Computed example of a mutant assay.
Amino acid sequence: MADVDLTGRTVLVTGGAQGLGAGMAEALARAGASVMISDIRSDIGKTTAAGIPGARFVPHDVTSDRDWAAAIETTVAEFGGLDVVVNNAGVEVTQLIVDTEPESLLTMLNVNVVGTMLGVKHAFRAMRPDGPAGKGGAVVNVASVAAAIAFPGISGYSATKSAIDRLTRVAAMEAGKLGYGVRVNCVLPGLVATEMGTKLAVETSSLGLFDSPEAAVGEVVELTPSGRLGEVADMADAVVFLASDQARFVNGVGLRVDGGMGM
């Protein structure tokens, strides 16, 4: 993102091996940040990190409290601090409400909600004045436009992303009340043609909700005043902004980056 300087900042990006997470990691590095990519997919994560100057990789299951502690410890040890945590890791399971599988719902709750909550927990512990980083900072959670619209086939996903939006606001208040010096915001991305976005179009059409994946995409575009799908760069630039000093008085916000779809 032009004119944003994150030189000297250290950022941990979860789910950074591919898709939006990889794009966010690249954009943060271009802005000057030292980036630690974490992901459950070590093979892809190592390759992605190798392609970003100065980036490193740590294996990380965001549903594990122990993995979170280890990822934070590794980041602080290798880069000398921690200034920003981007809670991007997430999963989406498409299913009709009448066909809800509890196991699938629990997977989304664990990764999307518990994983984000643990990320906020460990970011606070590291960044607050008595933490190993100890200089305050910023947390950017990744929710979704699904938290703001009623799109069929993604009820469980929408519920978890709505939870992230609410969690963000409570976390910002707690951090302020306790003097942690940490801002907490979230972005609500619109549909992007990543692997997850493409899968959603295919699966909603296979459920009979749309005539074809192309029709599903067309419905999204029709609902979007900007008249197009989102791009990875659109979301990455928003994260860079929220991580920067240009957003120093932006706190507890759910920033919709959806071309107006969720207005």
Score class of each variant (00 low, 15 high):
I149T: 01
A143S: 15
L118C: 01
K121E: 07
D130S: 13
K135V: 07
A146L: 10
G119W: 01
A126H: 13
G137F: 02
V145T: 15
G131I: 09
G131L: 11
G134A: 12
R128I: 09
G153I: 04
R125K: 15
P129C: 09
V142R: 00
A126M: 12
L118Q: 00
P132E: 13
A126Q: 13
I149A: 00
P129I: 07
A150V: 08
K135W: 07
N141Y: 01
V140H: 06
G131K: 08
G119L: 00
A150I: 01
P152F: 12
G134F: 12
L118G: 04
A133S: 15
A126S: 13
A146E: 12
A138G: 02
L118A: 03
P132I: 08
G136K: 14
F124M: 15
G153H: 04
A147I: 02
G119F: 05
K135G: 12
S144R: 05
D130C: 07
G137N: 03
M127W: 11
V120T: 12
D130P: 08
K121Q: 15
P152W: 07
A146I: 04
S144L: 11
A147M: 06
A138C: 05
L118R: 01
V139M: 08
I154T: 10
G134C: 11
G134S: 10
A148Q: 12
A138Y: 02
A126T: 14
L118W: 02
F124P: 10
F151W: 15
P152D: 10
V145K: 07
K121P: 02
R125I: 06
A147S: 15
G136N: 14
K121W: 05
G153D: 07
N141R: 02
G131E: 13
P152R: 06
S144I: 05
G136Y: 13
A150E: 01
A123V: 02
M127K: 11
F151P: 00
N141Q: 04
P132R: 10
R125A: 14
G137S: 00
G137L: 03
P129A: 08
N141G: 03
I149G: 00
A123H: 04
D130N: 09
A148P: 05
A143P: 05
V145D: 14
L118I: 01
F124K: 13
I149Q: 01
H122M: 06
I149W: 00
L118E: 03
V140E: 07
I154N: 13
M127P: 08
A148D: 12
A150G: 11
A123W: 03
V140N: 04
A143N: 06
V139G: 06
R125N: 12
V139H: 08
V139E: 08
A133F: 01
K121V: 04
S144Y: 05
G131H: 11
F151E: 07
I149M: 00
G136V: 08
A143R: 01
G153E: 12
V142P: 00
R128M: 15
G136R: 14
P132W: 06
V140R: 02
H122Y: 13
V139D: 08
V142Y: 03
G153C: 06
R125P: 04
F151S: 07
G131W: 10
N141F: 00
V139N: 09
F151G: 03
P152S: 09
I149K: 02
